[in-house]
Design a protein around this nucleic acid. Sequence first.
DNA 1: TATATCTCCTGCGGGC
DNA 2: TGCCCGCAGGAGATAT
Length: 288
Amino acid sequence: MPELPEVEVVRRGLDAHVVGRVIETVDVFHPRAVRRHLPGAIDLARRLEGQTIASAERRGKYLWLVLEPSDVALVVHLGMSGQMLVQPPSAESEKHLRIRARLDSGMDLRFVDQRTFGGWALAELVTVDGTVLPDSVAHIARDPLDARFDPDAVVKVLRSKKTEIKRALLDQTVVSGVGNIYADEALWRAEIHGNRPTDRLTGPRLRCLLESVESVMTEALAQGGTSFDALYVNVNGQSGYFDRSLAAYGQENMPCPRCGAPIQREKFMNRSSYSCPNCQPRPRVVRG
DNA sequence: TATATCTCCTGCGGGC
DNA sequence: TGCCCGCAGGAGATAT
């Protein structure tokens, strides 16, 4: 599942392989892949054709291509299974190919998405807090790898909320880029149970948690950067290249790397949470 | 207004 | 062998 490190790997691939190229033609094969572009697939294709890809940018799990001369952004969200592939036109179409853009380089930029949670949409660029970004991304908070990320401000927001810490970590308007996997890993590193109320965690503990988020993402990014073929922009959400380094997520009944206690799996927000029952004790009183 | 829950989607694995 | 069901989860919509 693409979270911030995986999306950043894709952004770097796009930066290397499609920036500077002109979009010649666009074909949309599945309407759900452009559902966030309200004027529809025909409008999206028409407005993309002839545009030059000026840059590849990212905030959290959102990435976008800045287009010239229209000066709008093609916003891409990978959802759970989205891939942005640079392929020669002769390459066989992928089973879940949703959108194909042909570039003046003679290559295809393909959006492949099995579960169709992701998609493409055009958005106007706006300036928010000194940063230019698509208006559809304006509500997304800065991520921990953003040079202007302010951990003290995030700690303040967290302490003002009346919710559980894992819910808050997954809230992209508080801190962006964190999904279920890295939330569990960061909570394990900080030795905090995900059900702990945010307003009962001290500033230093929250600060420690944010540092854990940054460190786990930085390490994952370093590994992800070595796992892709240099000729392609290739994301495979199922490859699990960071699996070897996971301490908690998906490690049910495996020994905690810190204390040896078996990692437990619990249901949380209609999904799974993994934690060490010894290092990350549940709060005695769960808000309910 | 803030927070919690539901829904969308496809492929896989397990149980019967 | 084939069918059914649960699971995976990001984020917007809807409910509380």
